[in-house]
Amino acid sequence: MDKNMKAHVKITLKKGVLDPQGKAIHQALGSLGFDGIDQVRQGKYIEIDLAETDESKARAAIEKMCEKLLANMVIENYAIELEQT
């Protein structure tokens, strides 16, 4: 039986890139009484279902997708987790 894969792609802002949205969330959490937060950074999470069983092929394909479209490499990093489904 064919197996598929699910990719979990996390896109985060690079160090040093200002994140005004993260700052606003930080402030909102503070005003709700959540103390002790050093920093909040907001990113994106994308799930991709793939018709691929080979993990290294799947990873290579997702990497290409990240570099070409999903992330802007000027300001963002990406991390990929693969899962057999």
């Binding site: 890139v17 200002l18 005004p20 949205q21 606003a24 802007n72 000027v74 300001i75």
Partner: peptide, 17 residues
């Protein structure tokens, strides 16, 4: 133009959101 790389850099969310 920045997304294609024809011009460098990128546009972030406005500082005051």
């Amino acid at each position: 133009l920045t997304e294609t790389g024809l011009l460098p850099g990128v546009m972030l969310r406005n500082a005051n959101l």
